[in-house]
Amino acid sequence: MSDERPGHDIPDGRGRIGLHRTGLDLIGNPDVRVRDVEVTSDGWHVLRRTTLDYRGRDGQWSTQTRETYDRGNGATVLLYDPVARTLLLSRQFRFPAYVNGHPDGMLVESAAGLLDGDSPEEAIRREAAEELGVRIGQLTHLFDLYMSPGSVTERVHFYAAPYVSADIEGGGGLAEEGEEIEAVVVPYDKALGMVADGRIADGKTVVLIQWAALNLFG
């Protein structure tokens, strides 16, 4: 019986191999030695179980196991109208939020998406056009954040860009991916209230609105 495994030695459902090698070549932290990486789920994204040696502050080494969920990196953008003092956001159904206590799973969010092989700037221009029908002109990079570093590898690249309502055309997401995305124009002052009372509960969007409070509309 062959011990070849999809994603390891033979292609998985997306044609990938060598998924079990991620992390084996890390040398940036002398207190960490990666011993073994196992792919435990190789669906659209990848779940790995990594065994590593970690040297604590007392100088003693211990062997630990960590699971990491790798869905690639992403990008998000705060679209704002500086004259009307409004934000252009999206509203869509998010099952993970719905199954974890959100009343209806309909989240108000900033435009966002995975890079899918593009640069962060290219990706967020693509996502803004697909989701909200906005062709971004001037784009300002803000920062890059790990949103759930305890288990998810994703790093999100944050941007801000002005928009003009007259230039919006199309949007709604990709039907072939089952997306039904509604564009929502929210006055900035109302958005602050929606963060405070929980109507905006998406982490990346809250970060961007707080950035706007400090840098745009303060």
Rank of each mutant, 00 (worst) to 15 (best):
P103S: 02
A75I: 08
H141S: 06
V164A: 15
P149K: 12
V207P: 02
P120W: 00
D104Q: 13
D144E: 11
L145R: 10
R94A: 11
T50V: 15
V134P: 02
H45G: 09
L24A: 13
P82H: 05
Q210F: 06
G171H: 14
A84C: 06
L139S: 02
E130H: 11
L216A: 05
E109N: 09
D9I: 06
V34L: 09
D53R: 14
A160C: 06
E127I: 03
H102F: 13
E121F: 02
V99C: 11
H8W: 12
Q60I: 11
L107R: 07
T51D: 01
D42Q: 14
E122F: 01
L145K: 14
G172E: 08
S110Y: 01
S2A: 10
E131S: 06
P187G: 09
P103V: 03
S62G: 10
P6D: 07
E131C: 04
Q64M: 14
E67R: 05
P149N: 13
G28M: 00
W211H: 12
D197I: 07
Q92T: 08
G172Q: 10
E38I: 07
D104T: 11
S90V: 06
D42T: 12
L214P: 01
E4C: 05
R85L: 00
V195E: 03
G113H: 03
Q60A: 12
E177C: 09
L107V: 14
D104L: 10
D25I: 12
R35I: 15
I124K: 01
Y54D: 00
Y54M: 00
L192N: 07
G23F: 08
P103R: 02
L19G: 11
G193A: 02
S90M: 11
R5P: 05
P96W: 14
H20L: 08
L88R: 04
V207C: 04
R85K: 13
R14N: 15
P149L: 14
R91T: 03
L52K: 04
T153V: 13
P96V: 14
G15D: 01
G137T: 07
H20I: 07
D36P: 01
V108P: 04
D70R: 09
R71M: 15
T65P: 01
Q60E: 11
P96E: 11
A161Y: 05
G113L: 04
T22I: 15
G178N: 13
G105I: 09
L88I: 04
L139F: 01
V134K: 00
G171L: 11
N73C: 09
T65G: 05
A191K: 10
F95P: 14
V156S: 04
L145S: 04
V184E: 01
D167I: 11
R125K: 08
E180R: 15
G59S: 12
P120M: 01
D144M: 14
V99D: 09
E169T: 07
E177N: 10
V46M: 06
Q64A: 07
E177F: 15
E169G: 06
L88W: 03
F93E: 02
S110H: 00
